[in-house]
């Protein structure tokens, strides 16, 4: 359940933003989550609802945008889609891949009032 910890981190970032911006309430939180990362969107939503109660982000919609995994196959020298870790290159089957995208965990934007 490290999603609780991540929500705490998110709420801290929101608080810093609130001090600068002076908004009253957060209605929507746009988060980018990489498909190959360690975050389960379902657990993140659950943890967020619990963590955000009694904060400016209470009842806010958590708008999770999954970033697909992408990598570079070192054997056939091309960019490939990686659905999950441990999958080989869809063209040549090689596991010698360099991950380029899919581990994001980013607070993108807040919709505030």
């Amino acid at each position: 359940m490290h999603e609780m910890a991540l929500c705490q981190g998110m709420l801290e970032l929101i608080d810093v933003q609130r001090q600068k911006d002076g908004f009253e309430r957060v209605r929507r939180i746009i988060v980018e989550v990489g498909a190959l990362g360690h975050v389960d969107p379902h657990a993140l939503r659950f943890a967020f609802d619990v963590s955000a109660a009694d904060t400016v982000a209470a009842n806010a919609e958590l708008d999770i945008r999954e970033i697909p995994g992408r990598g570079w196959c070192m054997d056939c020298s091309r960019e490939i889609a990686v659905e999950k870790r441990g999958d080989g290159c869809p063209h040549c089957g090689s596991f010698t891949l360099i991950m380029q995208q899919g581990e994001e965990l980013r607070l993108k934007e807040l919709e505030v009032v």
Partner: peptide, 29 residues
């Protein structure tokens, strides 16, 4: 460093607006 505030658009009906944050959730750690 705290992120810069970037107001992207206003919403005339209820003043809702988007604030750009663009920070890694684990940035403090």
């Amino acid at each position: 460093e705290a992120p810069s505030v970037d107001v992207l658009r206003g919403d005339s009906e209820d003043n809702a607006r988007l604030v750009k944050v663009e920070q890694d959730i684990l940035s403090k750690n």
